[in-house]
Nucleic acid binder design. Structure first.
Lengths: 231, 231
DNA sequence: ATTCTTTCTTGACTTATGTCAATGCATTGC
DNA sequence: GCAATGCATTGACATAAGTCAAGAAAGAAT
């Protein structure tokens, strides 16, 4: 898991947080001096919910799942994360603990940056602080959407939404390799894995998708959108 | 709804946001000059989801419900708000729209402060910015909890949780006047109003609470906590 | 190739929860 | 006081979704 830093410097890195773009050379150097990289194999845990949150983490390559460990071992996957995403969670500023876990799905390269540095920059750079606020806000906004989705839609709507999320926001194609298991799709949509199989089968019968265990092809995106919106 | 400002100045107001405490005299005066008060009768809407978010709003007296308008007219009450709470929502920094509605439950007095002023202060006062970040984080944190509660607990657990929330965080007593209708309790716990009635009846049969249409008395708080935690 | 393990799939069954319809009980306004 | 309204309550019923058990497929390890 330990390795030398691969990326030579923050200055030349284009996989990091958009909010770092506006930093001065000194601020960026401060970040660069206080970071270290690590790699993770599939299924390895990058962030563990409940542990002290001392670092902000950014993926530089690979895909990870962000999930909460709920009651009696039941997980809820909040989203998938790629590069350019700040991983830390609101817990950092509440009780200094991560309030979600993050686990690698593919091989992952990650960059750890101490939160002390982040806080220093927030205090000294108003634009950065505002960027930070915008990032927090957008994530909170998505949580608001998600809570409606999970509580007010039926299984078909929730699954359709997840399939569209993969196509539009993760794999950027309507024909993608499905990197999550049926179990994990269920953890994302709050369904039992058996229900995921059943509903996917129904969507396939209606010729809306083509579903193989390890790939999904969206055949009728409009219909899928309707299902997702009507719940 | 319109009225002269009742509170003479922010300086003497103790019902506002804790984060305003650290402001300089000039900053506070700037806030004071750009605010206006309004009163609302029960059931009147203070913030309407989707409308442009130009103001931060603080209640100075009364109780309001914060809720999202979901699919096909179904609401989800996120929480109840009293004084000292910033009402605006993450939408402000995402698309400049309120992402939830707020409606008065009792008579409410509210203070409107332009977001331009807030933003100016954020830019000039790092401590205030950090306070803002903490506020956002805490609300996001609660949303994370809520999403687990709503998706992973059964009705008894969700209702128990709401009853404890009223007792511990809103009315500060185990014997309180129930200001929400059964319908609204349902919107808070994602239950049909009939289910609220039924489950409350069961909790009453088990001598855990004493429930009248307009008041609730918690008889066995430990048992209620167990139900809330076990789901 | 063969075992072993994990995941996927299917069908039968159970359970949680929502919906509908009818009724009762309060509160408000006239 | 009396209608009118909104809310609470109840029971019968419908439906969504989870659970369990078994087997099939697909990979990984030997």
């Amino acid at each position: 898991m330990y390795s030398e830093n691969i990326i030579s410097s923050c200055e030349v890195c284009n996989r990091c947080w958009a909010n770092f773009k506006g930093l001065s050379a000194e601020e960026l150097e401060q970040v660069n001096k206080n970071r270290y990289e690590a790699s993770f194999n599939p299924s390895e845990i990058i962030i563990k919910q409940g542990s002290p949150s001392s670092n902000a983490i950014f993926l530089t390559s690979g895909l990870a799942k962000v999930y909460m460990e709920g009651y009696s071992g039941k997980n809820l996957i909040i989203n998938l994360a790629e590069h350019s995403t700040l991983l830390a969670g609101p817990g950092v500023h509440v009780n200094s603990r991560y309030c979600y876990s993050v686990a690698a799905i593919t091989s992952v390269q990650a960059c750890f940056i101490s939160f002390d540095v982040i806080r220093t920059i927030i205090a000294g750079n108003p634009a950065f602080a505002l960027g930070f606020i915008e990032d927090l806000s957008e994530k909170a906004f998505r949580m608001h959407q998600k809570i409606l989705n999970l509580t007010q839609k039926k299984m078909h709507g929730r699954l359709a939404e997840a399939l569209l999320y993969f196509a539009d926001e993760v794999f950027h194609s309507d024909d993608y390799e499905m990197l999550l298991t049926r179990q994990e799709i269920g953890e994302m949509t709050n369904m039992a894995k058996e229900s995921v199989v059943r509903v996917m089968g129904e969507l396939e019968n209606e010729k809306i998708i083509r579903a193989m265990p390890h790939s999904v092809k969206i055949l009728d995106k409009d219909k899928l959108r309707v299902i997702s919106e009507k719940g």
